[in-house]
Amino acid sequence: MDKIYIYGAGSVGKLVAQIISDINAKNRQWEIAGFIDDDEAKLGQSYAGFKILGGSKELAKGSSVIIGFSKPIQKKKVAEKLNSLRINSPTLIHPSAWLGERVKLGKGTVIYPGVCIDCDVVIGEHATINKNATFGHDSYYGNYITLSPGVNLGGFLEVGEGVEFGIGACTIQKLKIGNWTKIGAGAVVTKDLPANCTAVGIPAKPIKFHIE
C-alpha cells in the first residue's frame, strides 16, 4: 500500500480518513501515515486514531497528501504550498459513488458516499464533493469548489473557481456561476450569479459581495 497523509486534523480530515478506510475495504490501496497540521499545539497528539506529525516541513518531495479542509480559500492556500513542495495529491472516490462516462476529476478531489456525476462533467483540482450530491451532464467546475451534502446541480453549468454550495442547494440547467461565490443552504439558483457574492433564497439572489 502507498502511504498517504491528511493535511488538516479536523472534522473534514476525519471524514477523509473514513473515505480512505472504505476504499481500502474494497481494495487495499492506502496506508494513512498520519495528519499534517500547522497548529504546533497539536503536534504529537492523536486524532481519529492517527498521529498528528507536525506541519508541512514533515513532508518529503513526492509524498501523497490529501487536503482535509472544506473551505475553498483554505484549500487553495494549502494546495499552493503543496505544489511548491512538489507534493502529490491523489483523487479519492468513495466506492458507493457513481460516475458516468468521460467524467474528469482534478488531482486532490474527494468524492464522498452516494455522489452521482453524469457523463461529460469536468471537475477541477481539490474539489470537495460531499454526501449524495448530484451533477447534471455536460458541465464544467473550477478548482477548489465545495459541495455540501444533498446539493443537486443541473446540466450545462459553468461554475468558477472556489464556488461553495451550502447543504441542499440546487440549480436549474444552463447557468454560469462566477468565481468564489457562496450559495446558501437550501437556495435554488435559477439565474446566472456573478463572482464574489453570497447568494441565498428561492430564487437565489446576491445579498452581499466579498473579496477572497
Results as ranks from 00 to 15, higher is better:
V115K: 03
S56V: 12
G62N: 08
P149G: 01
I52S: 03
K131L: 11
T146M: 05
P113S: 08
E125P: 11
S148V: 00
I123Q: 07
L147N: 03
V65I: 03
C119G: 01
I93G: 04
D118T: 08
S84Y: 10
C116G: 00
S84N: 05
N130E: 10
V103Y: 12
V122I: 07
T91I: 07
G54C: 05
K81Y: 14
I67N: 06
Q74T: 11
I67G: 01
T134R: 07
K71A: 14
G54T: 06
I67R: 09
T91C: 12
K77L: 14
L153D: 05
K131H: 15
I73C: 15
L99W: 11
T128I: 13
A79I: 08
K76H: 02
A127E: 03
G155T: 06
D120H: 05
A127W: 03
K57G: 02
I145D: 00
T134N: 10
C116T: 08
D120I: 00
Y144F: 15
L153Y: 10
V122Y: 06
L92T: 14
K81C: 07
K71G: 02
P90H: 14
Q74L: 15
G55M: 08
G54N: 06
P95S: 01
L147V: 11
P90D: 10
L147R: 05
N143I: 13
E101L: 00
P72G: 00
N88V: 15
S56M: 02
G100I: 06
S63M: 04
G136Q: 03
